[in-house]
Amino acid sequence: VHHSAMSPEEFISRIMEAEPPEIYLMEDLKKPFTEASMMMSLTNLADKELVLMISWAKKIPGFVELSLTDQIHLLKCCWLEILMLGLMWRSVDHPGKLIFSPDFKLNREEGQCVEGIMEIFDMLLAATSRFRELKLQREEYVCLKAMILLNSNLCTSAPQTAEELESRNKLLRLLDSVIDALVWAISKMGLSTQQQTLRLGHLTMLLSHIRHVSNKGMDHLSTMKRKNVVLVYDLLLEMLDANT
């Protein structure tokens, strides 16, 4: 079934099925952390998650119908936002903590050992608190994640060729499906029409904060790489280089 013919309920169940499995860092964490050891754990985890993120994107109905160029651009633009939203979702029931993985949980104060990271931790914790206040539902979370992916590149490139225009139109229709899905997810919560509209506004406004934290995080990671605090390699290096 093509996504344009799917009900919002079907669409959501497809993106729920696309959710990546829980991932473990699987390292012996030696505490207290050093700047290098914490950055290494963070980047190792990010690299593992990125591989799963590509498989996740491919399972979003309609994503693989976009041009390969668009698929690459979208992922390169939004990967850190997607990682951060996932982190917020895992941390939503743990105030003051960032649950990077079940075997890698950090308190705000542990950010002290990496120069400049506490500011980012605080922004992540603040956005997580907003999601906690809003009592973010799983269905809403998966829609927001798909929205981040599909929206990430919309205002940075103008289609030139017929093929690019076709892919962009597909992208816009796909965004329609995701917005419909989010609206449907909100409508199931038993709120008044006005409360539903407000909730949609509040949830989507949070996306601009996530973009902001992601930009900060991207700068931070490229600084850490430049200063040789951490060795960035493989897929993570490719994704970072696309942004610097």
Binding site: I54, S55, K58, L68, Q71, I72, L75, D234, M239
Partner: peptide, 13 residues
């Protein structure tokens, strides 16, 4: 080929 391109173009198992 980049790793991203490789992952995007491989068929799922």
């Amino acid at each position: 080929h980049t790793k991203l391109l490789q992952l995007l173009t491989t068929k799922p198992e």
